[in-house]
Amino acid sequence: MIILGIESATAQVGCAIGGHEGVLASIHSARGRRHAENLTPQIEFVLKQARINMNEISVVAVDVGPGLYTGLRVGVATAVSVAFGLGVPMIGVSSLDLLAYPVRHCSKLIVATIDARRGEIFHADYRQVPGGVQRVSEPSVSTPDDLAAELQAHGNEAILVGDGAVRYADTFTNLRGVEAAEPSIAFPSAASIVQLAHAKALREEFVVPTELEPVYLRKPDAVEIENQKRRLL
């Protein structure tokens, strides 16, 4: 089984290729907003580096968010088209799951965070389980202050991971029992997608390209304004 993993839901864009033997090649770039420009050449590059032919790909896995909308959609549109073009199934992986995965050896509460812009953070909580992590809260969007208050309220020892925690470090540094993970793992990695998707593939958790939907967690502004108007009238 050969899995192509695509990750472009944050400020960085990348992909990786791998399977039973683990990750065979991966690449990331983070300069400028060049998700759409870089992603297709990156796929070409990792295939060459891993010496894998296009038609050997048996699954396309993609980060479905939450994340930055334009980049997220570039990743999903590309992944869906690769899967459709090759006639292979897909696996969707949450960006927050991808962030929690590298800190799976930590026994504290793991809080995965992604900078949602506009003064907000996408986040979800995870707990260590044998062989990985398990999500223990629904992904949601909050202000850094609300997230900090929540962490203090339940008083658990926690580790914060992701670029949301990095961006709002000032809000979280002095919280009791809360530590920050290394900034080097602040972005979801394409290698993690291949690893998580491999486990899901063994459980046959496949979707067809038409079933794959990005996770936004926010309605478009215009819809929000419309809803508010309706509530007020």
Binding site: I43, M54, T70, V74, A77, A79, S81, F84
Partner: peptide
């Protein structure tokens, strides 16, 4: 609209790559 354009461009480039 840039966000809309990028979806068609991404899909087209991906198909171009996989179909050669």
């Amino acid at each position: 609209l840039v966000g809309s354009l990028l979806i068609g461009v991404s899909a087209a480039k991906a198909l171009s790559l996989v179909w050669g």
